[in-house]
């Protein structure tokens, strides 16, 4: 059961990856990246539970709690670049 959930989640992860590759608009790409970031960290948590290895889970929780600060900074940099 957990395996099935994991595989469907990986399939869902392919959608934003494909979108990031095929769309040339930078904001659409950023959206896809944000989606990839969240989905992978949730996947890490699911894998941790599946393998019953909570050290992996701690990594996932750390990633989630540090957050997508880098993406936010990048968004601001891009906004500034567009203003020039």
């Amino acid at each position: 059961m957990m395996n099935a959930i994991l595989i469907t989640m990986i399939l869902a992860l392919l959608l934003p990856i494909y979108e990031a590759w095929q769309d040339d608009n930078i904001w659409q790409k950023m959206l896809a990246f944000a989606s990839i970031a969240t989905k992978t960290s949730i996947l890490i948590l699911v894998v941790a539970v599946l393998r019953d290895d909570w050290t992996i889970g701690v990594v996932g929780v750390l990633i989630l709690s540090v957050g997508n600060a880098a993406l936010m900074l990048l968004a601001h940099v891009l906004r500034r670049l567009n203003e020039l």
């Binding site: 904001w27 944000a34 949730i42 957050g67 997508n68 993406l71 936010m72 906004r79």
Partner: peptide, 23 residues
């Protein structure tokens, strides 16, 4: 994880909305 997910994702949504319309 639950709390930080909710907060970060929402804030990122706001930042992306703001930046993509202001630029």
């Amino acid at each position: 994880a639950l709390i930080s997910l909710a907060i970060w994702n929402t804030v990122l949504g706001y930042v992306l909305a703001y930046c993509s319309t202001e630029g």
